[in-house]
Design a binder for these strands. Structure first.
Lengths: 151, 151
DNA sequence: TATTGTTATACTCTATAACTATA
DNA sequence: TATAGTTATAGAGTATAACAATA
């Protein structure tokens, strides 16, 4: 028990001694705020994630998007259905394999993504404001290291 | 957009530029692992949270537990029902207010909590192993600071 | 009239399995 | 036989509102 209390000292009986708990707590808070911030745009965080991936690599298949985003294939169908209904993305047939649907953003999708990125950026500033600029850099670096290590 | 990329440099199109995304990703991963680790014990992370709180302050009311754990009152009923069914906790009447139920751990509950704490501690070691001891301390400190600031 | 605990209910999210059309 | 996408469904988790007992 004691050897996980890496911080100043133990706070008996409180869950903050477990960094994994703090991670889950803050992650949930961050997720919810983003969810709320996107509501006026009619989007969910998942839409943003998929749109970001598609913007980076236009023409990804739904299968590839599934692998990159950890959204399971059946949910991916729904997400892309919704993006298509909103006119933000479109499915196009794969030239060589008629089973595969490749995904692209529409012009409206590109514009929308820029607006939503600005919202996301603003939210980051607010959320991490309690930390100094250097602390934010340090935290971000450690999170990236951990995220890339814990495959 | 650029001003939230606190890390080395932008990774175009990837979500890792948003620290809030990394927080949500890692928090979810941590939560799931803990969930899986508790399964053999027949408990959910919520049970652990409530038991920890009750161990620290025996006799808390369900209302107070709701406020401290962010588990809503109706779910709290279910959690405590389950702990009682497992013989790990018990409701006792409040001496002055017959509406209030005060919660205590049983002897079995205390023992169980110790075992589960050891499981939680082991999980922390595994999860944060990719970081050095100093990095872990730094991360834990920053998470605590952020968690206590973002009320 | 307000509060504690409770119940019932609905809603979101996610996971699973089965189906189709292609390969 | 295997794969991409789709559909339907069930399950977990969570939130909401109404209710009874008590203050």
């Amino acid at each position: 028990m004691m050897d996980v209390m890496w911080e100043d000292g133990p706070i008996p009986g409180e869950l903050g001694v477990f960094p994994g708990y703090l991670l889950a707590l803050l992650g949930e808070k961050s997720r919810r705020r983003f969810h709320r911030a996107l509501e006026p745009e009619g989007l969910h965080p998942r839409h943003f994630g998929v749109m970001t991936m598609v913007a980076a690599q236009p023409g990804l298949s739904q299968q590839e998007l599934h692998e990159k985003t950890a959204i399971d294939p059946s949910s991916m169908v729904a997400v892309i259905d919704e993006l298509e209904a909103l006119g933000l993305a479109e499915r196009r047939p794969h030239p060589d394999d008629r089973r595969v649907r490749t995904i692209f953003l529409t012009a409206r999708g590109e514009e929308k993504l820029e607006r939503v990125r600005a919202i996301a950026a603003q939210l980051q500033r607010e959320f991490f404001q309690p930390l100094s600029a250097e602390e934010r850099r340090t935290l971000h670096g450690l999170l990236r290291k951990l995220a890339s290590a814990t495959s």
